[in-house]
């Protein structure tokens, strides 16, 4: 990721500011961050400091829960069709009910996720199981296409072999 100010150096500083609900996020290189900071162009955000317990337990937790949703979520009647968790309860607890909640509440989650993480799309490690499923799906659609062509060309022996392969793949998904 390059610095959004000079577009030359690697961005090492991530800056977020929230002024009256308008959120601005900037990725800067160290030099640009310093220049902008000195010029007073970067308003400092309040830092969250927790860790008020003793002894070492303060370090074993996951840090403070993040309030991710606004007031709108509190009055919402929306629920997840898979697990039944309501948006209001999820917002209050800062935790979702099941993996499918991410799809059910995707429109409400989009903005807060962007504010918190600064980005909206995953770029890291990909689950091996997911990769295998994707590959099987790709192979399936390719086979279905070839099956249609084989039937059209009246190559029934080949078509039968493809149909068996499709059934086998479908069973794995």
């Amino acid at each position: 990721m390059q610095c959004e100010r000079c577009n030359k150096k690697k961005a090492t500083v991530f800056y977020r500011e929230n002024i009256n609900g308008r959120v601005k996020a900037l990725r800067l290189c160290g030099d640009c961050a310093e220049v902008m900071e000195e010029a007073g162009e970067l308003e400092d955000m309040s830092t969250v400091l927790s860790g008020a317990h003793s002894p070492l337990f303060a370090f074993t937790g996951t840090g403070c829960p993040i309030p991710l949703w606004g007031d709108a979520a509190d009055s919402s009647k929306k629920t997840c069709p898979t697990c039944g968790e309501s948006l209001a309860r999820a917002a209050e607890r800062g935790r979702l009910g099941c993996p499918a909640c991410y799809t059910a509440f995707s429109s409400e989650l989009a903005a807060p996720l962007r504010v918190f993480h600064g980005r909206a799309t995953h770029t890291g490690r990909v689950s091996a199981g997911f990769r295998a499923r994707k590959e099987a799906e790709r192979r399936l659609s390719e086979l279905r296409e070839r099956l249609r062509a084989a039937v059209a060309a009246e190559e029934f022996e080949q078509a039968a072999a493809m149909r068996d392969e499709i059934r086998r793949l479908e069973a794995t998904l």
Partner: peptide
């Protein structure tokens, strides 16, 4: 796991990696 959101976690603060 979701292609766009990465690994799905109970707290949205941890999704992605």
């Amino acid at each position: 796991f979701d292609e766009k959101m990465g690994y799905l976690t109970a707290s949205p603060a941890h999704i992605g990696t």
